[in-house]
Amino acid sequence: MDDRRVAVVVEDDEDIRELMVALLGQSGFEVHAAANGTDGVDAVKENDPVLVTVDLGLPDIDGYEVTRRVRRFTDAYVVMLTARNEEIDTLMGLDAGADDYLTKPFRPRELRARVEAMLRRPRVAQAPVGTQAPIPTSVPAVPEHGQGDTAGQAAGPTSAAAGSAAAAPSGPAGRTDGSSADARLVLNGLVLYPHVHHVEAEGRDVTLTPTEFVLLETLLRSGRVVRSKAELTRILRGDEPDAGTFVSESDERTVEVHVGNMRRKLGDDPRRPRWIETVRGIGYRAAGAAETSG
């Protein structure tokens, strides 16, 4: 397994960029830096990182567009940095496919903590092209693009996902099945393939971000058990759901946004949910017990 940790920093302010390069270098990353969005996308293509940090305000293409573009070919964790506190920035950043966001000015300790938390998150294994594992013809190893915002997850042989998945200490809560590529969770026409990072809703391919995928898989595996937003936050961090670690309102709000984006992509109406129910004041649960097969 390739255990190198590569990061790409896309930031136009030289002082902040070099500071981030130094910080991530201290955390053991091999860091590549880019001063604009176009070069940043190229750097991600060339270096196959597990982590990408993207500043929202870049001189050529903005951070949203950078994130959308890199999402077409990488499953790396994407952290969006923004100098604006307005909620809309956060929401749009998450919708663009970012896994997390950080407001500038940031404390070095905070950046390190976020990065380490993300790398502890359960990363969904993907089937590399050419794998011996049987992949059903109905499940493409590389999800097709060209629909909607195409914030896709590639599963090609150069994807960083395989390495980060293998490094993850645990899967979504309750994971117990084997590693067969055609293993699936099925609920009311929704099919989730855990090992090829693929979701179909009523036969339609749905492209979820890695974070959305983990949330959906966790909820489907939890059956009718309610998962609180604090539990889901901890699961995304790679903590035990009941670890009791601090969860802020902002963390819970982030989970809400991820679930909202996931529902929109699935086409699930929260007022008449087929797949994910809101349990007011607590969190979420699956609308039924998902069947497992494979």
């Binding site: 302010d13 902040i16 305000g57 100098a83 000015p105 940031f106």
Partner: peptide, 10 residues
Amino acid sequence: LSLKTSSAMA
């Protein structure tokens, strides 16, 4: 924003 945030960090 660049002036504000970088100055705060420095």
